[in-house]
Design a protein around this nucleic acid. Structure first.
Lengths: 89, 89
DNA sequence: GGTTATTACGATGGACGTAATGATC
DNA sequence: GATCATTACGTCCATCGTAATAACC
């Protein structure tokens, strides 16, 4: 599992649409679609129901969303901590 | 950043050696070395000091270790949650 | 010389963009 | 037919193992 996939998921959850999330993150639409499929595969569950008007979160998607956000916060924290520690070496 | 890299880091931190961690995780020694370099690159900081007797954690490595473990716990939680939710769909 | 980590290199699979297709309104 | 997502396909980079090298006890 990659943090880019988590970012893709949280962004899609906010927009309710893949195309906007793709634009926001700087990916093409197929690339983002691929990332979500990768994440679903890693988690063993469908996260979104797709449609021509956008996407909706499945139950599983709704349940993991807060943890996905928390995970991204931890990762950001590690980056900051590591960067600061390295600079003071 | 990938969760395999975090697992590699925590395992190396526990053993204090890369070869044992590699064996535990089912990777070759070069593969694990590569994963750590990737993680260091993603974090922008050196995590280990390498030597012929094993490795030691840098300050940055010591600081992020608890957060790395916490991140892995969250990821495991997402897998469990998603799996259970998907099964009850 | 034995132990541990890195470098070199070739092979396989992953991740991406563009273009084309599918589906729904 | 416009909109949003997926599939197809080609390309480039990531990741791995094996083999060779480097460094320290």
């Amino acid at each position: 599992m990659d943090d880019r996939e988590l970012r893709a998921f949280t962004s899609i959850a906010e927009f309710g649409r893949m195309d906007l999330a793709a634009k926001e993150l700087g990916y093409s639409q197929p690339a983002l679609s691929y990332q979500i499929r990768r994440l679903e595969s890693a988690l063993g569950a469908a996260l979104l129901t797709r449609g021509p008007t956008g996407v909706e979160l499945t139950i599983a998607g709704q349940l993991i969303l807060p943890t996905a956000r928390a995970t991204l916060v931890l990762i950001e924290g590690m980056k900051q901590t590591a960067g600061v520690a390295d600079r003071r070496r």
